[in-house]
Amino acid sequence: MTQKTDPAKMTIIAWAGLSRTWQDFPADVEDAIRGADGVRTGFSRPTDPGIEPAGAGIRVPVANVRKGGA
């Protein structure tokens, strides 16, 4: 079976909305799928269920503001 007709891969690519992009740049899209796998497993997940996402507005620890100084 060629990569082009791999139904599982094509489903993922279609789900991502990249069917047209895959037609023009199949190697780039397939590299992206492999690359994403490597990154998502590249850090340890928090084990404490109480850890919340940082979000965009990084919370500034008030105690630290203006604390530094020589």
């Binding site: 991502a16 990249l18 992009t21 994403a36 997940r45 928090p46 850890i51 996402p53 940082a54």
Partner: peptide, 27 residues
């Protein structure tokens, strides 16, 4: 640029939120 951006289509919401949670720990 194209090659560096495309992996973003294949991360899940779970991946993104776990990264944000780990970000809290790292901070």
């Amino acid at each position: 640029t194209r090659k560096r951006l495309l992996p973003g289509f294949f991360f899940s919401a779970r991946d993104y939120i776990q990264a944000q949670r780990r970000r809290t720990e790292l901070t």
